[in-house]
């Protein structure tokens, strides 16, 4: 598969949001491993986890990722070159700033955190300045959120449902966002990698 360049009028994302459920940890660790230490845009990862195994994700990702990796606290401003993991048991949202906000409202799509909640609030706050990536999962959470990002003008990418360990989540998103970019796990890595190159105006004019 050739490299997919973002469109010319592309605006550097202030955040890259990655959602997934069953089968997502493998894809996300591949992605985080692929990001260089100077990768600038903050990456926010939300994977549904069994409620009582909160450390599963952290354990799988730490050591592979060259960027700072942590669960955000309430009102924490998004920082460059940092990967944020949605804490289990809370919805993760974005407030103007942008900074993180948390809630213990009812689960959405039987999930807390819910990908829809994160993606919709990011779309609201960041508009076209966010990118959404949805990968493997066995339930439809995230489809509406990805659609909201697309409606707000942000870039959206879906893991190929044929390739995903669980195709239901990407398939549901694809049904709502038929124009989304559909990529393999490796393609997603390459696509996200090049988002950093578009970060500064200097570099943009140099290309």
């Amino acid at each position: 598969m050739g490299t997919v360049m973002p469109p010319v009028q592309w605006q550097a994302p202030e955040a890259i949001l990655v959602g997934g459920s069953a089968g997502a940890i493998e894809v996300v660790s591949l992605l985080l491993e692929a990001l260089p230490a100077d990768f600038a845009p903050p990456v926010v990862v939300l994977i549904h986890l069994p409620r009582h195994r909160p450390s599963a994700l952290d354990g799988a990702l730490r050591g592979k990722c060259r960027l700072a990796l942590r669960e955000p606290v309430d009102k924490e401003p998004l920082a460059r070159s940092t990967v944020y993991l949605a804490p289990p048991g809370y919805h993760l949202l974005m407030d103007p700033g942008p900074s993180f906000a948390l809630s213990v409202d009812e689960p959405v799509n039987f999930s807390r955190p819910s990908i829809d909640v994160l993606f919709e609030s990011a779309a609201d706050v960041l508009g076209p300045r966010c990118a959404g990536v949805l990968v493997s999962g066995a339930n439809p959470d995230g489809a509406h959120g990805l659609h909201a990002i697309q409606e707000a003008g942000g870039a959206v990418v879906i893991q190929d449902p044929e390739e995903a360990a669980q195709g239901a989540m990407p398939a549901a998103a694809l049904a709502l966002c038929p124009n989304a970019l559909v990529l393999s796990a490796k393609g997603i890595c390459r696509w996200v990698q090049q988002l950093s190159a578009w970060q500064t105006p200097n570099r943009r004019s140099a290309t």
């Binding site: 919805h91 949202l93 974005m94 407030d95 103007p96 906000a101 809630s103 409202d105 909640v117 919709e120 609030s121 609201d124 706050v125």
Partner: peptide, 9 residues
């Protein structure tokens, strides 16, 4: 109130 949660509600 924090706007993100308030809007959802």
């Amino acid at each position: 109130y924090a706007t993100s949660s308030l809007k959802r509600r």
